[in-house]
């Protein structure tokens, strides 16, 4: 059996009175492509943010490569306000900042593109390599480790070739067209040397052809870089095509899980999406 890369247990994220993610449990195994889907506002991005340390979950535990990276239970004001389940299951508080989690090998992209806008395409990718450098402030400033710098530059250029941005490497990131910006987000996440890649709506705003190309790219990256992928996406063609397994959430709660075929036939999923299907 494959190793579990990411394991999420009973995660609840509550903002004031709003329970954005409600007692969510899921796992992703090595080499899998797993999708997390659900209607708008279901809590998908919030779940990503809790996993990557941007928000501290109110309750629950997250393990990454058999290491607990987050454990939480309602404290302080939340003790009274808490509207989720399993309030007494966890007793420790373990938290990690996003940069630590990135260093452990979790790379991510953002739904509302967060590139370093004024910097060049190449610089955007180089920044993701910064934490892997062996040099220190002194050797780096005085170019004593110029060989290392040369090496990461080469690696980043290779990455840009893969996502088809090599020719645009010196352009300012904000000047790229939308689809290219999404590609750059992926290249930047790859540059962190992740074992798990989290993609938040990588196909948002893309046309059917671009979406198809992206599907192929994600597969290729999974194979070439031996990645495990957790994906949030609204393009159902892409999701059904690429996913090994799917988790469906609605109002923060898991409503269905299984292979694409199983999920598609699930009445609860159809119900949850009906409202959304009309306006899409």
């Amino acid at each position: 059996m494959a190793n579990t890369v990411l394991s999420i247990e009973n995660i609840t994220v509550q903002f004031g009175g709003v329970v954005a993610v409600n007692n969510l449990s899921m796992h992703v195994d090595e080499g899998e492509i797993v999708s997390l889907i659900g209607p708008n506002g279901a809590g998908k991005t919030t779940a990503f943010n809790a996993i990557t340390g941007v928000y501290q979950a109110t309750n629950g535990r997250v393990s990454f490569n058999d290491r607990v990276i987050l454990e939480s239970h309602p404290t302080g004001k939340m003790r009274k306000l808490y509207a989720g389940e399993n309030a007494d299951l966890y007793h420790k508080i373990i938290k990690n900042t996003p940069d630590k989690i990135a260093k452990l090998g979790m790379g991510r992209t953002f739904q509302n593109i967060r590139l370093f806008k004024e910097l060049s395409v190449l610089d955007n990718v180089l920044i993701a390599k910064h934490m892997r450098l062996k040099g220190n402030l002194f050797t780096d400033t005085f170019m004593i480790n110029y060989k290392e710098e040369k090496k990461i530059r080469q690696e980043c250029l290779e990455l840009l070739k893969i996502v088809d941005l090599y020719d645009l490497r010196d352009e300012v990131a904000s000047s790229l067209p939308y689809g290219k910006q999404r590609h750059l987000e992926i290249a930047r996440a790859l540059a962190t040397d992740p074992s798990l890649l989290l993609l938040d709506e990588p196909a948002a705003g893309m046309n059917p052809q671009e979406t198809e190309e992206l599907t192929a790219l994600i597969r290729k990256l999974r194979d070439d870089f031996k990645l495990t992928v957790l994906l949030i996406e609204h393009h159902m063609n892409l999701v059904m095509d690429i996913s090994d397994r799917i988790y469906v959430i609605d109002f923060g709660k898991l409503i269905s899980t299984g292979t694409p075929d199983m999920v598609q036939k699930d009445q609860r999923v159809i119900d949850a999406y009906l409202g959304v299907a009309e306006d899409e």
Binding site: T52, V54, T97, P98, D99, A102, K103, R108, F110, R114, L115, F116, K117, E118, L119, D123, L126, I127, A128, K129, H130, M131, R132, L133, G135, L137, D140, T141, M143, E149, I152, R188, A189, A191, T192
Partner: peptide, 25 residues
């Protein structure tokens, strides 16, 4: 111009993204 300088600029551009790329703010 060094890698640290790039990290500084990343913080200027977007703290959340910089942190997600492993820059200790």
């Amino acid at each position: 111009r060094s890698s640290y300088g790039r990290a500084f600029k990343a913080i200027r551009e977007d703290e959340i993204a910089a942190e997600a790329m492993g820059v200790n703010l």
